[in-house]
Computed example of a mutant assay.
Amino acid sequence: MLQSVWRYRHFILASIRGDLRGRFARSRLGAFWFILHPLAQSLIFSIVLAEVMRARMPNIDNQAAYPIYLLSGMAAWGLFSEILNRSLNIFIEQGSAMKKISFPRLCLPVIVLGSALINHVLLLAAILVIFMFFGHFPGLAWFYLIPGMAIISILAFGIGVFLGVLNVFARDIAQFMSVFMQLWFWFTPIVYLKSVIPPKFLPFIELNPMTPLVGLYQDALLLNQGPSWVGLWPAVFFGAIAVALSFVVFRRASPDLVDAL
């Protein structure tokens, strides 16, 4: 499967360009909409919770600490949710193309992955400008975002492809995930700090593979610190298992995908 994807790499690159152009078509702001939506959501949370959460960050003197903390977590979650949610529906959305054109079906979620990474880089560039406006300048810890992006992409890709295949045969998967992703968001320390979580809920937060990945972004962008590499291993392990399982399920279901659509 990977060899077939590599042989169609030019098709994938052209499709990523076409996907980005299609999403920006007839829009005066174009790519800025993919930046403005998460920034607007973060602004709303910051306005509502800034005073409350600022008191929970006593060791940081920066007045913009909570908005920076929030934007960092939202950036990590945005990459994860975009890859997962789009991969979940990509086979259904491209059903007509799959019936008319012969190409490796695995190219579709790979196109989603490439498009999401480009959007994420644009968002990080916008966040960098906002941080500099706050007087918070980037440090070398920003380079830690590269392995963070890789692990998040692997995790989201594996879960997204696995559920995307199942969604073709059972459309309730997408409906269930729309609710589950909201719960997953609030069980990830993005809007709140991990230190304010009641002890009875802490085990659930620790089992969440997105907790250390969001923490990587927050430590790198707010504190200019590297992550705890030991803490990232569960996310890496879970992502590897998800990718392997998705490949097995995809390979077995691939001959029946078009018929089910």
Rank of each mutant, 00 (worst) to 15 (best):
V214K: 01
Q225N: 09
V110G: 07
L124C: 12
L79P: 03
S46C: 10
G18I: 05
R17K: 12
A64S: 14
P212I: 05
L207F: 09
K200E: 12
S96M: 06
I101D: 00
Q63D: 15
W233I: 15
A97W: 08
A235F: 02
A97R: 13
S153W: 03
Y8R: 11
I12L: 07
Q3N: 13
A31T: 12
A141I: 07
R56Y: 06
F91S: 12
V248R: 08
L108T: 06
N167P: 11
I173F: 14
A75Y: 00
W33R: 07
R105Y: 10
D61V: 13
V110L: 09
S102D: 01
K200G: 02
L213K: 11
T188I: 09
R86A: 10
F131I: 00
V110D: 08
L155C: 03
L2W: 08
M177N: 02
I159F: 14
E93L: 13
I83N: 09
V191Q: 05
F137P: 01
Q3T: 12
V110Q: 03
A244G: 11
M74V: 14
F237Y: 02
S27Y: 11
F169E: 04
P147R: 11
I190C: 02
M57S: 06
R7G: 00
G148R: 09
V129Q: 06
M132H: 00
V110R: 05
W33D: 07
G148H: 11
M181Y: 07
P138E: 00
T188W: 04
I154H: 08
K194S: 14
F137G: 02
A116E: 04
L79K: 04
L223T: 08
F237N: 01
G158V: 10
A75F: 01
G78K: 02
L117F: 01
F131S: 02
R7Y: 03
L122N: 08
L140P: 02
L84Y: 13
L202S: 02
A174I: 06
I159E: 05
T188F: 06
N224E: 02
I154R: 09
D61P: 03
Y144T: 12
G114C: 09
I173E: 04
G231I: 04
L193Q: 10
I241C: 11
L155Q: 02
R86T: 14
F201L: 15
S72G: 05
L140C: 03
N208Q: 10
Q182V: 15
V121Y: 09
A14I: 03
F204T: 14
G148L: 10
G139Y: 07
W33L: 07
L163G: 12
Q41T: 15
V121L: 15
G18N: 14
L257E: 11
K99A: 15
S4M: 10
G78P: 01
A50N: 15
V121R: 12
